[in-house]
């Protein structure tokens, strides 16, 4: 065993990796800058008519209670806020590839979408309860936290059973098993993939450290929120794969976020409702 090829070589040799639409990527960065205006975001979106039309339909979905009232892109940005529109663009852009099956992880069609979207909503709710970080940033990072699995999938396909056995026999987390068998885990691969896609730093860090936030040299609250969000989405059963819950929970994340253990049940209650309502409204539009 041990490292056979580097992460970059592995990513280069993986076929069918998704592409983030250029417009969605630009919007992600624009939404983080302090100088963006609603008109700028609307103009950017208009460059990708397919994406723009889905964003407009999402803005008019039952979830926001504005049905049929949002006529233009600029209006959508003004009414919902540019950071909300950014996440709608990201939901529309990522659904096609997050909803594909990943047999290496035992994920059926839509499982990874359900898990990623559940983690995004959970991380957003964690951020809102904490009050120490931006909730839209937590949502974005939560949605993309498992992108490493998209690349790792084909390399794991005939090894999944062995990994589960290794994990059960040794009491190792699934990421420890990935590292032992392949030389790296889906977090490290996801972090590298996010770097190569030029995604924001909080997305890169959340992809890389979401299972081991304490390992990041300088703790990040977004990573902490995604770690807890991932745990909550998993424990409520949203899109579990072969790796199941074979992971460790790092409770230091709660301390850094200023949360108490009793907050977790309340966030889980909100998560079940918010995720269900969003999924009911969004899925027929983005599918």
């Amino acid at each position: 065993m041990g490292v056979i090829i580097t992460i970059d070589e592995m990513i280069d040799r993986t076929a069918d990796l998704p592409v983030i639409p250029a417009v969605a990527l630009r919007i992600m960065h624009e939404a983080d800058s302090n100088t963006t205006s609603a008109s700028q975001i609307a103009m950017l979106l208009a460059r990708d008519p397919a994406l723009a039309s889905r964003v407009l339909r999402l803005a008019n979905s039952a979830y926001y209670g504005l049905s049929g009232q949002v006529f233009g892109l600029k209006e959508a940005v003004v009414v919902l806020g540019l950071r909300c529109v950014k996440n709608l663009a990201l939901v529309a852009a990522s659904y096609p590839w997050l909803s594909k099956p990943l047999h290496g992880y035992g994920l059926e069609p839509k499982d990874l979408w359900m898990h990623s979207h559940g983690t995004a909503v959970a991380a957003m709710l964690v951020a809102q309860r904490s009050g120490r970080l931006r909730d839209d940033e937590a949502f974005t990072a939560g949605l993309l936290h498992d992108i490493g699995k998209l690349a790792m999938n084909v390399w794991l396909e005939r090894k999944t059973e062995a990994l589960i056995q290794l994990s059960t026999l040794n009491g190792w987390s699934f990421v420890e098993c990935e590292r032992t068998v392949l030389g790296y885990d889906h977090g490290q691969v996801g972090g590298r993939l996010a770097e190569r896609w030029n995604l924001p730093l909080s997305v890169i860090d959340s992809a890389r450290y979401h299972h081991e936030p304490d390992e990041r040299p300088d703790p990040s609250l977004v990573v902490d929120a995604v770690h807890l969000g991932d745990y909550l989405a998993s424990v409520l059963g949203f899109g579990l794969g072969a790796d199941g819950l074979q992971y460790a929970l790092q409770p230091n994340t709660l301390v850094r976020l200023g949360l108490h253990p009793q907050d977790i049940d309340r966030i889980a209650d909100d998560l079940e409702r918010e995720r269900r309502l969003q999924a009911e409204s969004f899925e027929e539009i983005v599918a």
Binding site: G171, L240, A248, P251, N252, L254
Partner: peptide, 14 residues
């Protein structure tokens, strides 16, 4: 189902 490891004490409520 549950995560296999809680790294700290005091995490029982989680």
């Amino acid at each position: 189902a549950q995560v296999f490891k809680f790294n700290n004490t005091g995490a029982n409520n989680l």
